[in-house]
Design a binder for these strands. Structure first.
Length: 300
DNA sequence: TCTGGGGTCCTAGGACCC
DNA sequence: TCTGGGGTCCTAGGACCC
């Protein structure tokens, strides 16, 4: 059974949000410290990662295995503190779902282990929202059906599919602390986008064109840096009343140049005259990404 | 917090083809 | 000309995550 920990790295008692690039650099340094230990790491976000240290935890009994991860976790926390003067919160459990819940359990500088033997009881009092994949909407649906804690979900006799569709069976297993998601190690990027919320809603063509040009240039640069090209361009608009819509177009040619992205974006906006009233937000994205091979394929 | 930004995944409907 | 069923692709929207 894999033993996984989720770590959350928290700037110590600092409420001022550091500049993003500083944050990112710090994140890289810490992830490097983690990688140095030789474990398998899935970085979830700038300040979170799942670590599979099952290679270090080889006891016959599942809970004895988890306990073997404790000294590793303690040492990791110490290393991060010594090298970066930051605290790290770590959760230890048998899978990603529980490791994350464990790491959320005690926030600043925490270390929580959820034993296999105790996981079902541990989960019972927690709100359904604590489960991965349950957001505001799903929480509302569950609450209406009388399911407010994970315990009540464990006890629910009906089929959750009637409430949450195909997520039902997975959710039921989550409620019992069962999760077989593997670490995702691929760093494949599926889409790249950016968006801008204006200080004041606007339908000024000059402002909108300028915004799109800047976004297209940024996307082009990010694609080139990763040696990617796109086959789909998407625009996103939000009006003053918060109505949000997207329009996308897929093309056969590979798109990497800012000008091509920009032109397709203008086409999408113009096609249905979407800028019929002032916009609160304008966004631009590319997807359907492929690696630039540097070499054309020849078809006979 | 009258609502930021950058992502992923799922679903549903329509077009199109056989 | 009308009818149908199934598969696939594209598009749009929404839920969710950090």
């Amino acid at each position: 059974m894999p033993s996984v920990t989720a770590g959350r790295l928290c700037p110590r008692g600092v409420f001022v949000r550091p500049r993003m690039d500083v944050y990112k650099q710090e994140s890289q340094e810490i992830m490097r410290l983690v990688a140095e230990t030789g474990v398998t790491v899935e970085q979830m976000s700038i300040d979170e990662a799942y670590i599979d240290c099952s290679a270090l935890c080889q006891a016959d009994d599942a809970d004895a295995s988890l306990r073997q991860a404790l000294p590793f976790a303690q040492e990791l926390k110490q290393r991060i503190r010594a090298a970066r003067q930051l605290t790290a919160t770590i959760g230890i459990a048998s899978n990603k779902l529980l490791a994350k819940i464990a790491s959320d359990h005690k926030k600043p500088d925490g270390l929580t282990l959820i034993a296999e033997r105790e996981k079902v009881q541990f989960l019972r009092p927690l709100p359904v929202r604590a489960l991965y994949g349950v957001g505001k909407k799903t929480e509302e649906i569950l609450n209406k059906a009388g399911i407010d804690t994970i315990g009540s979900m464990q006890d629910f006799p009906g089929d959750l599919r009637a409430l949450v569709g195909s997520f039902g069976p997975v959710l039921k297993r989550f409620a019992f602390g069962e999760d077989n998601r593997a670490l995702e190690l691929g760093d494949e990027i599926k889409s790249i986008s950016n968006e801008e919320t204006f200080l004041h809603d606007t339908d000024d063509r000059k402002i909108l064109r300028h915004c799109l040009r800047e976004q297209a240039a940024d996307l082009s640069e990010r694609m080139k840096r990763r040696r990617l090209s796109a086959h789909t361009v998407q625009v996103k608009l939000r009006y003053g009343d918060f109505t949000t819509l997207t329009r996308q177009i897929s093309v056969e040619e590979s798109i990497t140049e800012a000008n091509d992205i920009y032109r397709l974006a203008c086409f999408l906006l113009g096609r249905e005259k979407l800028v019929s009233r002032p916009l609160r937000l304008l966004g631009l994205g590319v997807s359907n990404l492929r690696e630039i091979s540097g070499q054309q394929l020849a078809f006979l």
